[in-house]
């Protein structure tokens, strides 16, 4: 069945209103995007939403009890809760460096979880 959906692009803060015509997973037309990222974004929003997951991981002996982390690439939106639980169980030892891998290949997504700041030991 042919469907039309309007999506606010969040590839950048500009926020283009993109209209996608699609039949299930088959994209027929994409309109309203100011750049190619917009088209890619709109396509993904129809087929399978993915997002970067930023959160925190618990730290032992750190200057702070937590270190902020993120996934190195977008992961499927429906995996977020599972990913949070997985990361929530982890505890790492300070010191940490920005970019340091905390969990490799999170839930087989191909994305690693990495530290997003330097965190010295206590």
């Amino acid at each position: 069945m042919l469907e039309k959906k309007t999506i606010t692009c969040v590839a950048c803060p500009k926020g283009c209103e993109i209209t996608v015509e699609h039949d299930g997973d088959e994209i027929i037309d994409i309109m309203g995007n100011a750049c190619p990222q917009g088209a890619d974004y709109a396509k993904e929003e129809i087929i399978a939403k993915t997002r970067i997951l930023p959160t925190t991981v618990r730290v032992k002996n750190g200057a702070l009890p937590l270190c902020p982390v993120k996934t190195t690439k977008q992961i499927p939106l429906e995996l977020m809760d599972q990913a949070m639980n997985k990361i929530g169980k982890k505890e790492v030892e300070a010191p940490l460096k920005v970019g340091q891998v905390i969990i490799k290949n999170l839930l087989d997504t191909g994305a690693d979880v990495v530290a997003t700041r330097d965190l010295p030991a206590n």
Binding site: P54, T55, K70, T116
Partner: peptide, 24 residues
Amino acid sequence: PQCIHNGFGLHHFGEELTGPEYSQ
């Protein structure tokens, strides 16, 4: 440092960073 989400730096660095990364 407490804005751990991504979305920073697209204008200034042309890449998407989290708050702590931008700050760093």
